[in-house]
């Protein structure tokens, strides 16, 4: 009986993996040109495994970014940069999206993204001096999810900041937090950013699917340097369900063209085959989990 159940579980898992692999298609990502700029879809706040409460390895992060139709990502491990550099090298080697190495400075009172930096930045310092260090490394400083509990930015730091996350999964679920993000952005007068803060996958309380919130960056050339330059100069567009943030000229360009607003909220469609594959996989895992506790040999007698 147990043997039969094991065979059934194995068949369910095998079928699920085959179906799931076949139906695992990437999100559409048409190339857009607006006003002489290439428009790139980017997510600048992505955590990988290990050391940052992420689940995906750096190489799978790069592959997933491509699957989600992202042209560029910034890998931002907590208080270090080496995982981001691994992802960057893998993407260069595999022809993946542009990967900007960076880190999330996980300090007390504020979290800040340092994008395009080479070396890790000490987290035990006020926001203003951390921004100076980011700029010394030719990086860009982005206020990460600056809701009230993460917004220890004094006037000097606000003046030095390059950008702020105005759209974040926190705000998609909670209007009060969305309002705090908007207030910070309007007060700071910086470049608008929409990020996912990808950590433990979509089930974690504060985060979403990679690329769920994204920033559209207007660049002349598809390079990391050009993306950083666009961030410094404010050439971005970010959509949430009701608002559009960013450079007014870019907002007008996108509105006249009409494609970008539609593209921004076109989610991934889940096919029947994905649902079927998932159901079979769950059944297979459930069966295996029940069979897993059974012991054999000497230990069975003792237990």
């Amino acid at each position: 009986m147990v043997k039969t159940l094991r065979v059934v579980a194995g068949c369910l898992l095998f079928t699920s993996i085959v179906l799931g692999s076949i139906s695992d298609t990437p999100r559409q990502n048409p190339h857009l040109m607006l006003g002489g700029y290439q428009v790139l879809a980017a997510d600048f706040h992505i955590h990988s495994f290990p050391l940052s409460w992420g689940v995906l390895s750096p190489w799978d992060t790069v592959v997933e970014a491509r699957r989600q139709g992202l042209d560029a990502i910034a890998m931002t491990p907590h208080n270090h940069t080496w995982v981001a550099k691994v992802g960057q090298r893998f993407s260069t080697w595999s022809g993946g999206p542009i990967v900007l190495a960076g880190e999330e400075i996980h300090s007390i009172g504020y979290h800040m993204l340092a994008i395009g930096v080479r070396n890790s930045i000490p987290w035990r310092q006020p926001a203003g001096s951390a921004i100076d260090e980011i700029h010394r490394q030719n990086g860009v400083a982005i206020a990460a999810h600056p809701i009230r509990s993460y917004s220890a930015y004094d006037a000097e730091a606000m003046r030095k900041l390059d950008a702020a996350e105005v759209v974040h999964p926190l705000g998609l679920r909670n209007e009060a937090l969305a309002s705090q993000l908007r207030d910070f952005y309007e007060h700071a007068h910086v470049t608008a950013i929409g990020d996912t803060d990808y950590h433990l996958g979509p089930l974690a309380p504060h985060v979403g699917e990679m690329g769920l919130c994204r920033t559209y960056v207007f660049v002349r050339e598809r390079t990391g340097m050009d993306i950083l330059d666009a961030l410094r100069k404010g050439r971005t567009l970010v959509y949430d369900r009701e608002h559009t943030y960013g450079d007014p000229a870019m907002i007008q360009l996108a509105a006249e063209d009409g494609r970008l607003p539609k593209l921004a909220w076109t989610g991934r469609e889940h096919h029947f085959s994905t649902l079927l594959s998932g159901s079979l996989g769950v059944l297979g895992l459930l069966l295996c989990s029940f069979l897993f506790g059974r012991t054999a040999g000497v230990t069975a007698h003792r237990l």
């Binding site: 699920s16 799931g20 695992d24 996958g201 979509p202 996989g281």
Partner: peptide
């Protein structure tokens, strides 16, 4: 795999 792609995929 489930957390990322909502299903099992070999990749």
């Amino acid at each position: 795999s489930f957390l990322t792609a909502r299903t099992l995929t070999l990749r």
